[in-house]
Amino acid sequence: MSEKTPAVKKFTGYHATAIIVAFFAVVVVVNLVMAQFALSTFSGTVVDNSYVASQKYNDWLEQARNQEEHGWTVSPALRKAGKASIAITTGDGAPLQGATMEAIAEHPIGQSDPFEISFTQGASGEYQSVQPLPEGRWKLKIIITQDDKNMRVVRDIW
Results as ranks from 00 to 15, higher is better:
Ser2Pro: 03
Glu3Lys: 11
Thr5Leu: 14
Lys9Met: 05
Lys9Cys: 13
Lys10Asn: 14
Phe11Ile: 09
Thr12Glu: 07
Tyr14Phe: 12
Ala18Ser: 15
Ile19Ala: 12
Ile19Pro: 08
Ile20Ala: 14
Val21Asn: 15
Ala22Glu: 09
Phe23Val: 12
Phe24Asn: 13
Phe24Cys: 06
Val29Asn: 14
Val30Trp: 13
Val30Arg: 15
Leu32Trp: 08
Val33Asn: 04
Val33Ile: 14
Gln36Glu: 07
Ser40Arg: 08
Ser40Thr: 02
Thr41His: 14
Gly44Trp: 01
Gly44Leu: 03
Val46Asn: 04
Val47Cys: 13
Asn49Phe: 04
Tyr51Thr: 09
Val52Glu: 14
Ala53Glu: 12
Ala53Cys: 10
Gln55Pro: 05
Lys56Gln: 10
Asn58Arg: 09
Gln63Asn: 09
Ala64Gln: 07
Ala64Met: 12
Arg65Asn: 07
Asn66Gly: 09
Gln67Met: 07
Glu69His: 10
Gly71Met: 01
Trp72Met: 05
Val74Cys: 08
Ser75Thr: 07
Ala77Cys: 03
Ala77Gln: 02
Ala77Leu: 01
Leu78Ala: 12
Leu78Lys: 09
Arg79Gln: 08
Arg79Glu: 10
Arg79Met: 15
Lys80Ile: 15
Ala81Pro: 06
Ala81Ile: 13
Ala84Tyr: 04
Ala84Ile: 00
Ile86Tyr: 01
Thr89Trp: 04
Gly91Trp: 06
Gly91Asp: 15
Pro95Met: 06
Pro95Thr: 03
Leu96Lys: 00
Gly98Phe: 04
Gly98Lys: 03
Thr100Ala: 11
Ala103Cys: 05
Ala103Thr: 00
Ala105Cys: 13
Glu106Cys: 08
Pro108Glu: 01
Pro108Asp: 06
Pro108Trp: 02
Ile109Pro: 12
Thr120Gly: 12
Thr120Ile: 06
Gln121Glu: 03
Gly122Lys: 03
Gly122Arg: 10
Ser124Trp: 06
Glu126Ala: 07
Tyr127His: 02
Tyr127Glu: 00
Gln128Glu: 10
Ser129Asn: 01
Leu133Phe: 01
Leu133Asp: 01
Pro134Asn: 03
Gly136Pro: 00
Trp138Gly: 00
Trp138Ile: 01
Lys139Glu: 09
Lys141Met: 12
Ile142Arg: 00
Ile143Gly: 15
Ile144Thr: 00
Lys149Phe: 02
Met151Pro: 00
Arg155Met: 04
Arg155Asn: 02
Asp156Met: 13
Ile157Lys: 01
Ile157Glu: 01
